[in-house]
């Protein structure tokens, strides 16, 4: 098996090969055993400094990256735009170059503009890891989702995965589609027609506007959050109507003849895209996803850290 990634940065799943993804998974298996030990820490990255630069709010991703970094013994620098000179008008490149001048080796960035990470990767020397850029990609989320499916169903290849909800504004959806397809899964998107991009079928995914049909088809349902903060116009009459049409509840789940896995990238709007009894049911692997997130991010940082000396 390969021992190095084909990319220097993790900007998107789009740039990864199948063997890159398999290498990340194999490495994450080992890190998962590390984080389940009494001493959850290894000294691999003790000479690496990582800056977490978040221009957008985040709970899970930021904590998960920070834990992953600390468990690899890296030095961690946290930066959030709301409490910084960005408010005074400093540009992205200037901000990051100033941080790098203080000898930082890797940058984990979340930004509200699609392509911000690519822009950064092209213009700076440090290794860049995308923690979500606008409505474009969120690669580590897709990797941990696929890793969780692999863990629960044994394999991703040949599995049917339905991604339900706000596909239009979701970077999780795009990264998931690309990642699952590279691993050989079939992908369907479902949601109100207003929230499904017009040309999405060009990516080779099925489109189904009827939630029940999508649920009957799939082995795994990934329920996305309705991203009200990104919706500049009204895409559906009310959240109540949305949840009546596209919300996953116990009744819908029990009417299926099979047991499907339920995933959600968080944060959950309980009662909108998913009801509490489903989110907390034994079919839900939402908290497995969160646990695997740390292992996946450790693997990504570990493998990319080797690129800091190239």
């Amino acid at each position: 098996m390969k021992t190095a990634l084909s990319v220097k940065h993790l900007v998107g799943i789009k740039d990864l090969t199948l063997s890159d993804i398999e290498l990340i998974f194999a490495t994450a298996d080992n890190f998962k055993s590390v984080i389940n030990r009494p001493i959850k820490k290894v000294p691999s990255l003790r000479d690496v400094t990582i800056a977490n630069i978040f221009f957008e709010n985040s709970t899970r991703t930021r904590i998960s990256f920070e834990l992953a970094e600390r468990r690899l013994s890296a030095d961690v620098l946290n930066f959030s735009a709301s409490a910084s000179s960005v408010k005074k008008g400093e540009t992205l490149i200037d901000t990051v170059k100033n941080i790098l001048a203080m000898k930082v080796d890797m940058v984990v960035m979340r930004h509200s503009s699609a392509g911000a990470c690519k822009f950064l990767a092209d213009n700076i020397d440090a290794v860049v890891v995308n923690a979500g850029d606008g409505t474009h990609e969120h690669p580590t989320q897709a990797l941990l989702d696929a890793f969780s499916i692999r863990e629960n169903l044994g394999n991703v290849k040949g599995k049917k995965v339905a991604i339900v909800g706000d596909i239009m504004h979701s970077r999780v959806a795009l990264s998931n589609i690309l990642c699952l397809q590279k691993l050989g899964a079939e992908v369907m998107v479902s949601g109100p027609p207003t929230l499904i991009p017009k040309y999405i079928s060009a990516l080779g995914v099925k489109v189904e506007y009827d939630l029940m049909k999508a649920l009957q088809w799939c082995d795994v349902a990934n329920m996305l959050r309705i991203q009200l903060e990104r919706q500049d116009i009204k895409y559906f009459p009310s959240t109540r109507e949305y949840s009546m049409q596209y919300g996953l509840n116990k009744q819908r789940l029990d009417s299926l003849k099979k047991k499907i896995l339920i995933m959600h990238p968080g944060p959950i709007n309980r009662g909108v895209e998913i009801t509490s009894d489903v989110a907390d049911s034994d079919q839900s692997i939402i908290l497995d996803q969160v646990e695997n997130g740390v292992a996946i991010r450790m693997a990504v940082l570990y493998l990319l850290a080797a690129k800091t000396q190239e």
Partner: peptide, 15 residues
């Protein structure tokens, strides 16, 4: 994961 040379070999060592 405890090695001191995994980044100097040019490629990470598979665990």
């Amino acid at each position: 994961f405890y090695r001191d040379d995994f980044r100097t070999k040019g490629h990470p060592i598979s665990p």
